[in-house]
Each structure stands twice: as structure tokens, then as C-alpha cells.
Design a binder for these strands. Structure first.
Lengths: 229, 229
DNA sequence: CCTGAAACTTGCCCAGGGTGCAAAGTTGCA
DNA sequence: TGCAACTTTGCACCCTGGGCAAGTTTCAGG
């Protein structure tokens, strides 16, 4: 019943009944999936379970998502789409690394990270992310590449394809690294102090990238104060 | 990693019949899979097809690999294991970025890249890598992290976890980027000139990483690179 | 209000992925 | 030679994923 703006919604001025129903169903599915993940843990429930919980048929589930993973990954997708949006908003003449950092900053906000943090905490047991999860991150990487390419088109000393791809991949990797470290330290802690630490980790990660991982250590000692829990 | 009795670790001096058979079967499976990939293209053959081609039962296939993807990804796994081995061989006091570059250099060799290049060319149609493929790269990333961590333990200004993870992820991303660009330019061309280009791309990618992606800045306004803090 | 078209849901069916189990076949060792 | 350990294989079973066609809902006119 909670109406919210979801991806795949065509135009914001399309309150047609059909669109509304679809969005609601989509929402119901991901919430059912999340709920099952919470109660039973990863890999221990089927598409049918989700469909039952969402009040739809198994077949309809597949009209919305290709797998349980995909349903769960919609959380990540939303998060990363948000990141890309932030990235796109940055002024085109800003150094791109700074744009990336700024975009990441906007994500270290309780409402935004909460779903992802929970998903992280519920699935972290399995060493590797699900296929759909990885797909989401890779999609984000491609978006970054695209935005970077658009910027490069406006500058004379245009960066080549290698630059764009290597840059986008590295940004994603550093962002992931920061989130992994944050999560390893704080679990699903969403307190202001914890979020501040996440923010600092993201800044540090971008700084590392910007300094070319110089062996002379950056002032990382400032950020990593509380090492153990 | 025991030294006395090794039931699972096939040491190089283990010409036991069992080990030999297993290795041969494994080989037969990946070759059958590769052959089918060549003749029919990705996604158009089943586990049973592979098993038939390899002269084993469907069930036995699953004793060796969890999926068709996994069978194919063993190629990537071999390639990346090789890379890690090269990386481990580098002197511990060498700058780590240079070690990474050197390790990558050793891979730009016909015999080594050929299988991966073919796999690339045969599966590139589908935008995203298979799950097992990604798993292989991620495993490599973890290995790099581990090696880097071991090195850091011996140096005074020890790098923290963020540094290690961000570094490893970025190296992998840059390596992937270089290979993608190479492949986009040359296809599966393995000529000396093409391999030289791959080598150069790898060098360039590492250089980009080492310089913090500082690019030739736009002429007008400030040419400040993002090297703050 | 009625009616037909378009969109959506659902049940049915089927090919294929993945796994536990136990019987049958191999290999290793005394 | 014969037993113990290991491997292969067929079998049964559940789950994924998608095509198809018959219902059901939404929407636009008459």
C-alpha cells in the first residue's frame, strides 16, 4: 500500500491504475523477499515462498524478476541508481574524482544506506555476491563510464577508453572496499558515529585512488581509530 | 597444506592413478565445454551435452563442476592463478604497483592469454560475465589482497585494510579494463603486434592507477589535479 | 452502461540445473 | 587375493525459468 517511486516507472505523471498496481506488486515482492531473508537466511527459501508471501502466483513472480537474487538485488539497484543520479548532478568542470567522492558522500545517509546495509548484513555470510547483485554494481560501473565519457567529450585532452574504463572500475572497487571495511567494523550499525566513519572511509578510499596508492601512507591514522569492536 | 599425507592436494609428485584420472577427466570436461562453446555458441548447450562429449555421465559432471559456467571458467581460473603466482614471485621490497605490473606483463604471452582470449571472444556477446567467471576474478582479487597484506606486515607504515582492499580491487579493475579495451580493438588477434599492444595497455592502466588518474587537464581555468589532503 | 482491445495474472507443462543416495565399478595396499 | 577407500553412475526429487493459452482487470470509446 505504500506508494513510492520505483525504477521502471515510466514518467512521474503516469498515475494510471496499471502502473500503480505494477509498482505495488514489485514492492510487495521485494519486501516479501527481504522478509524471508530476514527470517530464514539466504538460500533457504524458494521463489514459491516469496510468491506466497507476496500474495501472487509463482508465475507472476517471474513476470517481475528472473530469480530470488534479482528481487533482492533491486535494493542494491535502487541504491546505486541514486548514486549515479548524484554523480550526474555534479558540475561538469569539477575534477571527476571529486565528483565521485561527492556522489558517494550523498549516499552515506541513514535512509539511503539502511536498506543496503541490511542486505549486506543478511547476505555477507556467503563470500561472493549473487549474480544479480554483481550485475547491479557492474551496471553502475557502466553508468560511471558513460558519464565520464560525456564529460571527456567536452574537454580537449580527451581521455581514452582505457582511462574511462579503468577509472570507473577503480571507483567502484574503492567504493566497495570502503563499504566492506565499514561493514566489517560496524556491522549494520547505522548510528551517526558509524555513518560518519563510513563517510570518512569513502573519503579515504577516494584519496587513496587520487594519490595513486602511494606507498607513503596517507593520513589514514586519522580515520581508523577504533579498530576492534 | 599438510606435508605428510595429502588426500586432496595433488602435489606435483603425485602420479597416482586416481589423481591422473581425475585430472584427465577434468581436462576432458573443460575441453568438451570449450568445443561446444565454439560450435554452438554460449547458452545453447546443456550439461548433458558436455557430459556426453566428455564421455562421462551427467552426474559425474557435477562431481567436478557446479555448472557449465564453472567448467568454462576453469580457463579463467588457470589464467588468474598464473597471475597470482607471478605476483608472489616478485621481491617483497619492490613497490607493490610495480609488482602488479610485472605480474601482468608475464601474462601477455601467447600461450598464456590464448585460452582466455578465445573464451572472451566466444562469450563477449553477453554483456556480463558469468557468475563463475566473476568468481574467478574475485578470487584473484582476494589473493592480491592477501599477498599485499603479507607484504604490509613487514613494512613500518603498515597499510590498513581499506588500503589493501581498495588497491586489490583497483588493480583487478584496471587489468580487466586493459583486457576489455584490447579485445575491443583486436578481437582474438594473438599476433606479436597485438600482444605488444596488450602489454602496453596493461602498462598504461597501471600507470593511470599509479598517477591517481591525473589526466591532462583542460586548458582553461585551474589545472589542479585532485590530490588534496 | 456496455463492449471490445490491450494489458496483466495464473495454471499447466516441460526442459534443464543441481543434489542426496545407494549400488556398481576402480584403485591402492597388505 | 581380498578388503578398504574412492569414484562413477543411475535414480529420484526439488527447484528454476519460460512458452502458451485461458481467465481477469483496466481502459477507451460508443
Amino acid at each position: 500500500m505504500t506508494t513510492s517511486i520505483e525504477p521502471t516507472a515510466p514518467a512521474s505523471a503516469s498515475p494510471s491504475r496499471r502502473e500503480l498496481n505494477k509498482a505495488a506488486t514489485r514492492q510487495a515482492i521485494t519486501e516479501a523477499a527481504l522478509s524471508l531473508l530476514r527470517s530464514r537466511g539466504p538460500g533457504s527459501f524458494t521463489v514459491e515462498d516469496i510468491a506466497d508471501a507476496a500474495g501472487i502466483s509463482r508465475r507472476t513472480f517471474f513476470n517481475y524478476f528472473g530469480s530470488t537474487d534479482a528481487a533482492l538485488a533491486s535494493v542494491t539497484h535502487g541504491f546505486l541508481d541514486n548514486a549515479i543520479q548524484q554523480f550526474r548532478l555534479r558540475p561538469a568542470d569539477e575534477p571527476i574524482l571529486q565528483s565521485a567522492q561527492a556522489a558517494l558522500m550523498a549516499l552515506a545517509d541513514p535512509m539511503t544506506v539502511a536498506p543496503l546495509a541490511e542486505l549486506f548484513s543478511l547476505t555477507q555470510q556467503s563470500s561472493l555476491m549473487s549474480h544479480s547483485e554483481l550485475e547491479a554494481w557492474d551496471h553502475c560501473r557502466e553508468q560511471i563510464t558513460t558519464v565520464a565519457r560525456e564529460r571527456a567529450a567536452g574537454t580537449p585532452g580527451a581521455a581514452d577508453e582505457l582511462y574511462l574504463r579503468a577509472f570507473a572500475g577503480s571507483v567502484i572497487s574503492c567504493g566497495k572496499a570502503a563499504m566492506e571495511v565499514w561493514f566489517a567494523r560496524r556491522g549494520a550499525d547505522l548510528s551517526p558515529a558509524s555513518l560518519a566513519e563510513l563517510r570518512q572511509l569513502l573519503i579515504d578510499a577516494m584519496a587513496l585512488l587520487g594519490s595513486g596508492f602511494a606507498t607513503v601512507q596517507p593520513p589514514s591514522s586519522s580515520s581508523s581509530d577504533s579498530r576492534s569492536s
